[in-house]
Simulated assay, not measured.
Amino acid sequence: MDILHIVVLAVIQGLTEFLPISSSAHLILIPRLLGWEDQGIAFDVSLHIGSLIAVLIYFKPQLSYLLSNWLSSFKDKKINSESRLVWGIGIATIPVSLVGLAITNTGVDVLLRSPLIIASTTIIFGLLLGLAEWIGTRERNEYSLTWQQIILIGLVQALALIPGTSRSGVTMTAALLLGLTRKAAARFSFLLSIPAIILAGADETLSLVMQANHSVAWSDLLLGATVSAFSAYWCIRLFINLLDRIGMFPFVFYRLGLGIALFILVV
């Protein structure tokens, strides 16, 4: 791959994985619009690894504390708020895992990559994000979620398998509608991304391994992962720091503009 292509796609992945604007939509559409060849499964895996590294580094102190409490819950046979959150993240990951397995190798995932579908979901879920920003009470943190609400967010996350939806976007939308503050919604969404990214990366890695006679350009993958990790880390940091100041409407307007532009380009 051309170095420019690698850097551009890696930066886009790093930024859009955690912003509520859909990373998959951008990674599908930008190569098409610019006439670039498909980057391939191996490169997608490297970008996911970069995003995963970024979120693990940013949330390292909180993750260490959460996992410590989760492991202690086995010994003490008691669940506190931290270990409960870890269990909740695991439970909320089940729906997207099952749906992902159900559509794998069925051809449905290919059909969903249509520019018209991406344009539609970009607008529809952008409007829902705007509604959540408008009517959300923003009074609670992620530890206050009930089991039913955690399952609901998990079910909503499965919609992110449709390109243009945005995993972070739909989970933050659901969390805001349930009354979480913007930062709490973002934190829960980002923590929820960890198993989701691991599963997506594992699935893509398996597909790569099963491809016979597939040569891998390791230098391209390393560069892609590095740039993706760097851009994703700063995206998370800036997003959380600025979230209360700017709110969600800038992303709503971006999604609406992007969706309209896509309709104009593909119709």
Rank of each mutant, 00 (worst) to 15 (best):
Ile3Ala: 14
Leu4Thr: 07
Ile6Ser: 06
Leu9Arg: 04
Gln13Thr: 09
Gly14Arg: 00
Leu15Phe: 08
Leu15Val: 04
Glu17Met: 05
Phe18Arg: 01
Phe18Ile: 03
Pro20Leu: 04
Ser22Ala: 07
Ala25Phe: 06
His26Met: 02
Ile30Trp: 00
Ile30Lys: 00
Pro31Arg: 00
Pro31Asp: 00
Trp36Pro: 01
Asp38Asn: 14
Ala42Glu: 04
Ala42Asp: 02
Ala42Leu: 15
Ala42Asn: 05
Val45Ser: 05
Gly50Arg: 01
Tyr58Gly: 06
Tyr58Trp: 12
Phe59His: 03
Lys60Leu: 14
Gln62Pro: 08
Trp70Met: 12
Ser72Gln: 14
Ser72Lys: 08
Lys77Gln: 15
Lys78Pro: 02
Ile79Gln: 06
Asn80Gln: 15
Val86Gly: 09
Val86Met: 12
Gly88Ser: 09
Gly88Ala: 09
Gly90Arg: 12
Gly90Asp: 03
Ile91Asp: 03
Val99Arg: 01
Gly100Lys: 00
Leu101Met: 15
Thr104Glu: 13
Gly107Arg: 03
Val108Thr: 11
Asp109Arg: 10
Leu112Pro: 02
Arg113Cys: 09
Ile118Thr: 02
Ile123Gln: 06
Leu128Lys: 03
Gly130Leu: 13
Leu131Thr: 10
Ala132Gln: 09
Glu133Arg: 02
Glu133Ala: 11
Glu139Gln: 09
Arg140Gly: 15
Glu142Pro: 02
Ser144Phe: 12
Trp147Ile: 13
Ile150Phe: 07
Ile151His: 07
Ile153Glu: 13
Val156Gly: 10
Val156Leu: 14
Val156Arg: 04
Leu159Gly: 00
Leu161Ile: 14
Pro163Gly: 06
Arg167His: 11
Thr173Tyr: 11
Leu176Tyr: 05
Arg182Thr: 02
Lys183Thr: 07
Ala185Glu: 01
Phe188Ile: 05
Leu191Met: 13
Leu192Pro: 05
Pro195Tyr: 01
Pro195Asp: 08
Leu199Lys: 10
Gly201Ser: 12
Asp203Lys: 15
Glu204Leu: 14
Leu206Cys: 11
Leu208Phe: 12
Asn213Pro: 05
His214Met: 14
Ser215Arg: 07
Val216Ala: 08
Ser219Leu: 11
Asp220Pro: 02
Ala229Asp: 02
Ser231Trp: 03
Ala232Asp: 07
Tyr233Asp: 09
Tyr233Val: 04
Trp234Val: 06
Trp234Leu: 04
Trp234Ser: 10
Cys235Glu: 08
Cys235Thr: 09
Ile236Gln: 06
Phe239Ser: 04
Ile240Asn: 04
Asn241Ser: 08
Asn241Lys: 09
Asn241Met: 08
Arg245Cys: 13
Gly247Ser: 09
Met248Arg: 05
Val252Phe: 07
Leu256Gln: 00
Gly257Asn: 01
Gly259Arg: 01
Gly259Phe: 08
Ile260Met: 03
Ile260Val: 07
Leu262Ile: 13
Ile264Ser: 04
Leu265Thr: 07
